[in-house]
Every structure is written in C-alpha cells, then in structure tokens.
C-alpha cells in the first residue's frame, strides 16, 4: 500500500508522518504522533472517545483519515494543560468526580472545550444535547454535567 507524506499540526507542533491513505486520524495521532490520550471506543463514530478538535470544531478522529487533516490545527487532550496548571475543565472533572475509569474522559473534555469556547453561557439544555453525543459507561453522566457547568463558571471569572 502506497505511503503518503503528511504533516499534522497537533497542539501547535508539526508532526511529519509517512502513512497509507487508509490510516485514520485517530491511529495517526496515537501511533504516529505518540499521543495516546485520544482513545478508540468503537471505531464507528458513535461513542466519541476519540473526539479531537479540528480548527476548533469537535470531530470523531476514528471517522476521518489522517491525510484529510493536513493543514488543520488539531487539538487533543494532551494540549489542554499548561505545564502544571490544568485546564479549568480538567480541574472541574477531578473536583466533581466526573470520571471513573477515565477512558471516555479525553473525548468528553475535548467536546466540552469546544462547547465552552463556542458559548461560555451555554444553557443547560443545550449542554445536555451536546454532551449526549458521547458515551460514558461509568459515571451516569450527572457529574460530567456538573463539572462542565462548574468549569463554565470558573472560566467566566
């Protein structure tokens, strides 16, 4: 299978990769860039564990080819914290027990980052609607919603 030279810009850093056209963005991030925080829960675009931001918009990295992502600004969970300082959403997830096994957490964090960047005053009903695009099997979601609301409040201050 022929390989393509692709440059992916992830969290502000350029990664030059050689990969086949069929390689998904998720696999390229994990295996090519070493960014294993993006998780694969279903590989058919339903669970959202692989959610990353592409030019600020949440996408399923399992449903997109790596070659399609060339030229875009990609953001993953690894880019959220600034050194020792966690992103307010990361801190809120810890404070409100919004994760148990943590497998879905990177996807929820990236989904929520996009939500709050788009509308810092997002109403609860809209939050629930947006968050319903990802699956969590441990928490029952209640604390995820609380964490996103708490982070929204913290970011508004």
């Amino acid at each position: 299978m022929s390989e393509h030279a692709v440059t992916l810009r992830v969290n502000g850093i350029a990664h030059r990769l050689q990969l086949p056209a069929r390689r998904s963005l998720a696999d390229a991030l994990r295996d090519g860039c070493g960014l294993t925080g993006t998780h694969l829960g279903c590989e058919h675009g339903v669970c959202g564990a692989c959610t990353v931001l592409l030019d600020g918009v949440p996408v399923r990295a399992c449903l997109m080819l790596a070659v399609q992502a060339e030229g875009a600004e990609i953001r993953t969970v690894e880019g959220l914290a600034q050194g020792a300082t966690l992103h307010p959403l990361q801190q809120a997830f810890i404070d409100h027990h919004a994760l148990q096994c943590g497998f879905c957490t990177p996807g929820f964090l990236m989904l929520a980052v996009a939500m709050l960047e788009e509308d810092p005053d997002m109403p609860e009903a809209e939050m629930v609607h947006r968050l319903s695009s990802n699956l969590c099997r441990c928490t029952g979601y209640a604390n995820i919603l609380k964490a996103v609301q708490a982070a929204a409040a913290a970011m508004a201050r």
Binding site: G37, V77, F93, D95, F103, T105
Partner: peptide
C-alpha cells in the same frame, strides 16, 4: 476527597491496553 487516580487520566497519560 478527590481521587488519586485522576491526574494522569485527565491529561491523556493513561496506560490502557492499546497504549
């Protein structure tokens, strides 16, 4: 109290099987 487990998990530094 908050969990000891959470710090690597919210940073994408977990060590799941595929990792």
């Amino acid at each position: 109290v908050t969990r000891l487990e959470d710090a690597p998990l919210v940073r994408g530094q977990g060590a799941f099987a595929a990792d």
